[in-house]
Each structure stands twice: as C-alpha cells, then as structure tokens.
Write a protein that binds this DNA or RNA. Structure first.
Length: 650
RNA sequence: GCUGCUGUAGCUCAGAGGUAGAGCACUCCCUUGGUAAGGGAGAGGUCGAGAGUUCAAUUCUCUCCAGCAGCACCA
C-alpha cells in the first residue's frame, strides 16, 4: 500500500498508509483524543473523521474546543437530527435541505399540515432522545444512479431533484444518523451524542420557497439555534431579549416618536418627538454636505411616466411604483404620472439645464429626496422598510478621471458621519462587473481600479464581491455594526455609465467637444426612516444629548418651586436646549419614573433648597445618584454637550 | 406577493353563541410629597371591515384590510 505523509500542527510529519481516515489518525495519537475528536482539517478543508486521506497533507484534529468547527458540526448535525425527529413523528413528511446558518440551523420540510408551536416541543423532545441514544454517524459514497433510485424508492422527490441539479457526475456522499439517512456533503460528528442536548432550541416555523424560488412550492422551515453549551445558548436568548427591548417599533411608541396606521401602510406619521430627531439629523447632514462641497436641490414628487420610460425605470419597476392618473375633462388622454421612486433622473434634469463645462465638474448635487415605492406588503417592517421615505441622496457628475478622488472624498465624509453618529467602524463591500453589463471593458477597468485605489487609501480590508455590481457600474456598500452586534447595510456608492447616456447628460471638455459625464450615486444614511430605526435600536432609545428629542425636564418637588422651574426652563431654552417644565401635582418619584421611562437624558429636580440656593439637583438618565449643581454653571455645560459633533469647538 | 399566526379601551392583555373586563394611561377631587408608581372617584369600546349561518355573532364560516415571523423582493 502506498505511503503518505501527514504534517501535524506542531510541524511534525509522520508516514501513514494512504487511505487512512482522520479517525484512525486520532486513535493512533491517544484514546482520549479518539473519543473527543469531532473532525479534522485536512489541507485546509473541513474533513470528516471517516473520510480517507489519499495523499500527503497537513492535518489538524478538532475537538469541541475548536469553536468554528464545533459549532458548524453541532448545528449541521442538529439539522439532521431534527429532520430525523420530524420523520420519526410524521413519517410522510418529505425532507429537502437543512443547512447551517448564523447561530443555528434550519431544515425545510414538505408537509400538508402546518407545524404548530406545540409541535416544536414534541420535535425537540424527540431530538433529545436521538441525542441520548448516541447513534453512530456513518457515511458512504454512492453512484448517482443508485442514489436517485434510492430516493425514488423512498418517495423523496426533493432529494431526487437536488441530485439531478448537482452538476457533473461525481459520486455523492450519503450520511446516516443511526438508521436515518440523508444526502449530505458533510462533514458530521462521530455520533449523535456529541451534540449537546441542552444547548439547542427550536425557535420558529415559517414558510420558505423550495430552492428560494417564488414560483416553486412553499415549504415549511423550522429554525433552530444551537451552541456548544447551555451557557452560550442562554447568552444568545438573552441577546434576543435585549434586541426585542430595543425594537424601534416598541420604543417609537413608548417615546412617542412616530406611529403608523392602516390607512397608510408603510408610511410614517412622525410625532413632535420623532420629528425633532429627524430634523436634527437632517440639519446635521445638510451642514456636512455643505462642508464637503455639495449643492442642494429639490425636485418634483409627481413626474410624467415619460421620464421614467427614458430612464428605464418604467420598464423595470412599474409594478413597484405608485401610479398617479389624472383625468382632466378636456384632456385628450389620461396623463399617467408616477410618484418619484428615486431621485436620479430628476437630478439629471437639473444638471441638463444650461450647458455644462468641464470646469463645472465635479458637480455634487444633493437632495433630501422624498421617494415612494410600492413595496410588497410582506416586505414592510416598521421604519426599516417603508413605502414612503426620504433618502440622503446625492449624485456626483464628474469625469472618468475624477472618479478616484471623488470616491476617496466620499469615503472620508462617510466615515466622519458614521463616527459622529456613534458608529465606530464599518465594513466595505466592493462589487465588480457582472456578466451582463453596459459600458466598455475599458471604462469598467478604469472605474474599478479607481474605486479600489480609493478604498485602499482608507483601508486594505474590504470584501470583494465579484460579479455583483450593477449592470451600469461597480459599487461599494457600507455595513456597520450596532451596539449589540447586528450588522446593517446603509451607505452605498455606485458608479453609473448608463443613465447620463440615456438622459443625454453632457459637458463641454477642454477640447471644446461634448463628453459624457460619469454619474456617481451615493447615500450615507440610506433613508432617514431606516437610519432613525437603526439609531433608535443602537442607542436603545437613549440618544446622545444633541439628538435626544426631549433633552431636559425641570421637575418641581413642591409647588412653591413652580416659578423657579419656569425660570430655569426659560434659561435652558434661551441656551438652545429642549427643556420642559413638569410642575404637575405629583410626587418627585412619579416624575422621575415617568421621565426615565421616557428616556429624557437630564431630569433637574427643584424643591425649596434649590430655589433658595439657585441650584438644581441633576439626575442623569441611567444613573441613580444625583448631584446638586448651580443652575448658571450647569446651563453652559449642558449647552456644550448638546452641541452637534460637527459644531463642537476643538 | 407567498406560508403560518394575530387583530377586544390610548398601551399591555383577559374573555365568552345571549347587557364587554383588568392593569397602566386619561379627567376630576384629596394629598406639597426629596429621586423609578400616594389615595379616591369618573370617563372611555360599531370587539379591524364586509358578507353568511343563527331566534341571537365581537365569538362560528367566508372574503377583504392591517400587523407579526419567515421566504421571495429591495432601482
């Protein structure tokens, strides 16, 4: 038998017979490793212990201590065990696929009856039985024909379709958990008992299309989470609870920021509190845009379909546009308009007024553009996905040679804005030319190189997504992470070679001839609605003072202090703070509780002492202790804290 | 849009084929109280909309609307 050499993580190499399994290697090292082993990494690939190794390789044996591998296997085995449990309870359920996802796993089933929440408990119990049985996991490689025949015989049509969709005719890997069998790439654990029985939980049932295709049948998907131990599971469940507490829909109601109602699904009624945050943010963005050399414009809401036809949006997005038909008595035909779903074509109209020279470029045109899109009903979600929204939109008209500098300038602005708004870091995704695209390879080469060079002036760490650019140009997407670790995609930056062409935008070059400008679409917040949703959740409603809708409440302890309360509020207001008086006939405990729940950053309590000394007792949101401060000293301090970050001195 | 679930007072929720319930919030009265709910009284509902079954529907059935979870979609 041929010999191979396996190199261990410590650098030692040892000879073995070709075809040795990782399990046998582990067994050769120690008995305890053999028991604890879960998988291996062989030449960088995650390797099932039962798979033979045929050639020289590096090898590392994994135990439950190796987080990445352990979690992947636990979750993947959980998916199989869940499918086995489901078929054990309901033998006629058809199985499809069950992958690992972030925090857990799911499996899609085809079953006539819907699964109920009570079913989940029953399935969980069955899964625990299977885990406790410590059934061995076994794997074999089968010829395709044999596998297809097997699944046809077992009446598992989805599996047959899966196999038929796998390209080539390599043999297929089959897995058994005990008697239960599934088609699976692997790897898996050695036996079901290696899955911790107290560290997983089935979370929910929901519909999901077979193969992710909305024209195919709807399956039932059961989601589960799984971890290495009960503690990690508990932490995860706590995190979910924390996220639920921060839900912007809940906080929006509690803090009286906004509401939504049936008559205007997907659109926001902003209340005074919410609108204060909104306009404060908008004022901030307006200042930043000016600082970065943008001009601001405003364009119409209702625009004739002709423009959308010219831009190409009518053809592609008609179903998602709000159509406005005007039927005037004397008109020959109905005028068909659409509510603006985006601002770009309108900005080109502004650009096209008057002849532009290369001296006018780059032209950075910004608009807080109110847009309406008829989003599918199932997509709506609080402020995060709405039908009426306002983008912090801008288009930069420039020459090809200016792309790099404009990209770099934009990155500078974006990182500065995110930092001001409380997000320390962000990730960049760079999407390059797709298969089907407009524009010459030469232009794409140039644009992609410019974008990449610009990114590299900021960071070398970015995610490359080849082929995922828009058909009209390469793009950058920006993701940031919030206070509890969730990621949000916000900003975007897209080069566009097509729209200037379609809408005939030109400039006169140095050579006196007409040229096409490049259009750079960009947004930093995305939309105010969504961004505010994210801000609410990121801060859990506890906005920094400059953004807080209600900044200071001055509360009287006894009614004798009412006059002083009013005086203090007037002084705070004069200093530019959003201050309110609370002189209701209520106890201070009651007022403190109410304004704390309302997330007011500062409560200033005044009683007889304070009136006499011209002080206030300050209670900061989230802190229990109070501090007596001279009113005249406090006001400038609060005013400073309430100054937006871009206006802070020094 | 699709699958499943939900819709009762401003909010959170209970309820049952036959005058609709609680807590908080709201209004009024008493209370002037020192840092997360002082006491009392009162007002408040076309039970999401429409149709059907029934002597009788908020309750059962159907259709629609909206919301929630997920999927699909997201210029």
């Amino acid at each position: 038998m041929a010999q191979i050499s396996l190199t261990f993580p410590d650098g030692n190499a040892k000879p073995f017979d070709a075809g040795i399994t990782a399990a046998e290697v582990a067994a050769g090292i120690s008995n305890s490793l053999s028991k604890k082993a879960i998988s291996a990494t062989v030449n960088g690939a995650h390797w099932d212990l039962q798979w033979p190794i045929e050639e020289d390789a590096s090898i590392a044996i994994h135990t439950l201590k190796d987080d990445a591998q352990a979690l992947e296997l636990i979750r993947h085995d959980c998916a199989h065990i869940m499918a086995r449990a489901v078929q054990a309870i309901w033998p006629d359920v058809k199985v499809t696929i069950g992958p690992v996802i972030e925090h857990g796993f799911y499996y899609d089933f085809d079953r006539a009856e819907p699964f109920t929440p009570e079913d989940l408990g029953q399935i969980e119990a069955k899964m625990k039985e299977i885990i406790n049985a410590r059934d061995g996991v076994r794997t074999e490689v089968w010829a395709r024909d044999r596998a297809i025949a097997h699944y046809e015989a077992n009446n598992e049509p989805y599996k047959v379709e899966l196999i038929e969709a796998i390209p080539g005719d390599e043999p297929l890997r089959m897995y058994w958990h005990g008697d239960w069998q599934d088609l699976c790439r692997g790897p898996h654990l050695q036996h079901t008992g290696q899955v911790p029985a107290d560290a997983f939980k089935l979370m929910s049932v929901a519909g999901a299309y077979w193969r992710g295709d909305s024209s195919r049948s709807m399956l039932q998907r059961i989601y589960g989470v799984a971890f290495k131990n009960r503690d990690d599971l508990r932490k995860h469940l706590n995190m979910l609870e924390e996220a639920a507490k921060r839900d912007h829909r809940k906080l929006g109601r509690e803090m009286n920021l906004f509401h939504m109602q049936e008559e205007a699904p997907g659109q926001v009624f902003w209340h005074p509190n919410g609108w204060t945050v909104y306009t404060t943010l908008q004022d901030y963005m307006r200042r930043r845009q000016r600082q970065f050399g943008y001009v601001e414009v405003n364009t119409p809401q209702v625009v004739d379909r002709k423009l959308w036809e010219a831009s190409g949006h009518w053809e592609k997005y008609q179903e998602n546009m709000f159509i406005v038909e005007v039927d005037e008595e004397h008109a020959r035909e109905k005028a068909i308009n659409a509510l603006k779903p985006m601002n770009c074509p309108c900005h080109v109209q502004v650009y096209n007024q008057g002849l532009k020279s290369y001296r006018d470029l780059p032209l950075r045109m910004a608009e807080f553009g109110a847009c309406n899109r008829y989003e599918p009903s199932g997509a709506l979600h609080g402020l995060m996905r709405v039908r009426g929204f306002t983008q912090d939109d801008a288009h930069i008209f420039c020459t090809e040679d200016q792309i790099q500098a404009e990209t770099a300038l934009f990155l500078k602005m974006l990182s500065s804005v995110y930092e001001d708004l409380g997000f320390e870091s962000f990730d960049i995704k760079f999407s390059t030319r797709p298969e089907v695209r407009a524009g010459s390879d030469e232009v794409w080469d140039k644009a992609e190189a410019a974008l990449e060079a610009a990114i590299r002036t900021v960071t070398d760490e970015f995610e490359l997504d080849p082929g995922e650019g828009a058909f009209y140009g390469p793009k950058l997407d920006f993701k940031l992470t919030d206070a509890i670790g969730r990621e949000w995609q916000l900003g975007t930056f897209q080069a566009d070679f097509v729209l200037p062409e379609r809408l005939d935008a030109t400039y006169v070059g140095e050579d006196g001839a007409k040229h096409r400008p490049v259009m750079l679409h960009r947004a930093i917040l995305g939309s105010f609605e969504r961004f505010l949703g994210i801000l609410i959740e990121n801060f859990a409603g506890r906005f920094p003072l400059w953004l807080a809708p209600r900044q200071v409440v001055v509360a009287s302890i006894v009614s004798e202090a009412d006059g002083y309360v009013q005086e203090a509020v007037a002084a705070l207001t004069a200093a530019g703070l959003r201050a309110e008086a609370d002189i209701r006939n209520e106890k201070i405990n009651y007022k403190v509780r109410e304004h704390s729940l309302g997330k007011v950053p500062y409560i200033l309590a005044v009683g007889r002492k304070e009136v006499e000394d011209r002080t206030v007792t300050v209670r900061k949101l989230g802190e229990k202790q109070t501090q007596v401060v001279n009113l005249d000293q406090l006001i400038p301090e609060l005013a400073k804290e309430a100054t937006p970050p871009d206006q802070q001195a020094g």
